[in-house]
Write a protein that binds this DNA or RNA. Sequence first.
DNA 1: GGTTGACCTCAAGTTGACTTGAATTCGTAG
DNA 2: CTACGAATTCAAGTCAACTTGAGGTCAACC
Lengths: 144, 144
Amino acid sequence: MKLLDIGEVSQRSGVPPSTLRYYDEIGLIRSVARHGLRRQFEPLALTQLSLVALGKSAGFSLQDIAGMFGADGQPDLPRGDLLVRADEIDRQIGNLTTLRDALRHVAECRAPSHMECPSFQKLLRLAKRRRDPSQQSKERASSE
Amino acid sequence: MKLLDIGEVSQRSGVPPSTLRYYDEIGLIRSVARHGLRRQFEPLALTQLSLVALGKSAGFSLQDIAGMFGADGQPDLPRGDLLVRADEIDRQIGNLTTLRDALRHVAECRAPSHMECPSFQKLLRLAKRRRDPSQQSKERASSE
DNA sequence: GGTTGACCTCAAGTTGACTTGAATTCGTAG
DNA sequence: CTACGAATTCAAGTCAACTTGAGGTCAACC
């Protein structure tokens, strides 16, 4: 399978060379050879970059992403951890849905103040309920 | 309507005082009075903090969030912009759904290498298609 | 009316994710 | 075989979003 050198990976993926070098450095996406000085990557790297972009847009750190799809494109986490991650993402999807609905409401509702609109209030209650569960006990404790 | 001082807001929301001061400083969530030196906030601030948490978890910057729900809890953007934001979030939900499915697949699939599994490949193709549209032309141009 | 504890300010430090710049090294085309 | 251009290294810089620390202030309770 033929290798791509850094310039080609950069062009095809839209990721700047400096970033590719950085990812290589931190071990997120490794170059597998050199052509002279030039880093070369497997074509697989393009796929990995898609996954990285996906993960980043979801707000995951590069560390997180490395854990989900290991440095070799294979996951290095036990499947339980992966499923936990998947569930976290599910919660996040719920959050985003609420946020999206809130924005649409705010754009459309003609009430004088959104904060007084009952349907907006309902969205906000939803928003509150579904935050990071690790915080919830802390908050309940102090609000009582 | 009675005001809450910073300590109470911090406890009820789980957000550290230093962060509240920071948000006040940058104008994201403003304190409305002082009790001696002590910052005081409207109860509304708690709601705003929920929205901020929501937005952050979705990967938005504080700037973005300020734009969505203005510093007074009122949106200061024209409704068109808000709807554009909502659509962005919709795309993001699609991304996250793909990512979640990919993780679940990776956790469950018994193929020797996920990268060779046809159903994983299918997820990845999806992932590629739905990225930031502003990049697409650049990539298409250079991959030809 | 003095002590306490939670707050204050302001400057500086931290972390993650990169980018930038200067000086250098290759491979290829002429 | 030399010049060019694209890549290299390494150190330093940048930006967002906070946190930390030193030194000061104030309201409230005893």
